[in-house]
Design a protein around this nucleic acid. Structure first.
Lengths: 193, 193
DNA sequence: ACTATAACGCACAGAACTTGGCATTAAGCC
DNA sequence: GGCTTAATGCCAAGTTCTGTGCGTTATAGT
């Protein structure tokens, strides 16, 4: 979990300065995350400023500036790890069923307004450098494509399953709860079957 | 072209105060548009401020504040009309060929970094209110679905053609020039053939 | 429990952004 | 051409954001 946190700019290789991730820091982080998610749901991904977050989180703004530097980086970082990359993927042996479950998980996740708003913030920061809040999702897609019995590529999972969901989450959020996971997965599998 | 321009807030119905769209105003608008596109390509959709645009466009910043109010609104407005809605769609009688041409047009358009960056800015502002910089694209998709001989719905055009392109334009821009318009269109048509 | 120091809070200064009043220019319409 | 007034330019606060030095707190490791 490197994220794009700045903090102590130790670039000399000698024994990294062992970060402090527990206790107070964890409380502060949780508090900030909550504030960001509330604000982003209220005001959209832009329009969220660091002083604003600091006030709601009851944290000093300098803590936020030191940790992320700017609002864009902060939002993108929080958006990236909103869906735990270590949560474990469905793996029952039935690839199509697993893929359908995963797809449904995506749909449910982005149907929640907060997550969709965070995604929009990530979209705004995408394209430049290493900021891609969907990289975990893309890795998961590639993982499914690599499983035995797969008849599709990772790119096809992106195009046929991930893209429609993300597109709707961003631009047509009210249509997302209506879409059917199975439809997407069936087409993905049919194509090459 | 209602856009979300503010200007004279005349809400009483009596004869609207006839806007001035030509001459100097047009020059100013063109200059602003150019500046926004340059800046957004350089610095991303966020990180573009109104004073910044004003300076590069050699326009007074108060003119921009009065016209749009804030950077988000401005960017979304400019992004919406980047692809002229009145440009005319291909219509040779061969639906599949027309659709392929349109798809290729989309791919080419969003392969240009400026347009992709504007799209990201639009994505950031999406979801709230009436701001959707892709509404024209969605209308065009529905138009194709409504043509005689069509075997698909507008939603299917969105899911199978538009979504993959937009997804890649936003999150995987370097992969966009590689995608093939025909592949998307073929799958859209095959499905229900 | 003890030590070193990562991370935080506080305060202040400098920069940047917003906003409105007022004067000037010129687009739209006879 | 002459009139009305939309739109711009200029300026001057007022507000908010950004960034840094310094002292304090309490986490990670022994």
């Amino acid at each position: 979990m490197p994220s794009s946190v700045r903090y102590s700019g130790c670039m000399v290789a000698e024994s990294r300065p062992r970060r402090r991730t527990g206790g107070r820091s964890a409380v502060v982080l949780t508090s900030i995350r909550k504030a960001v998610e509330e604000l982003i749901a209220e005001r959209g991904s832009e329009g969220v400023t660091i002083p604003m977050v600091a006030e709601r989180a009851r944290v000093n703004h300098s803590s936020i500036y030191r940790r992320w530097g700017d609002a864009r980086t902060m939002i993108n970082d929080l958006a990236t790890y909103r869906l735990d990359p270590d949560r474990g993927l469905p793996d029952t042996g039935d690839l199509r069923a697993d893929l359908t479950a995963w797809t449904q998980e995506l749909i449910s996740h982005y149907s929640i307004p907060v997550n969709a708003a965070l995604l929009r913030g990530g979209a705004a920061a995408a394209g430049e450098s290493e900021s891609d809040c969907l990289r975990d999702r893309q890795a998961e897609a590639a993982g499914f494509a690599a499983r035995p019995g797969s008849t599709f590529t990772g790119d096809e999972v992106i195009d046929r399953v991930v893209a429609p969901i993300i597109y709707r989450a961003i631009f047509l959020p009210w249509t997302l709860p209506e879409v059917d996971a199975r439809t997407y997965v069936d087409e993905l599998c049919h194509r090459s079957a």
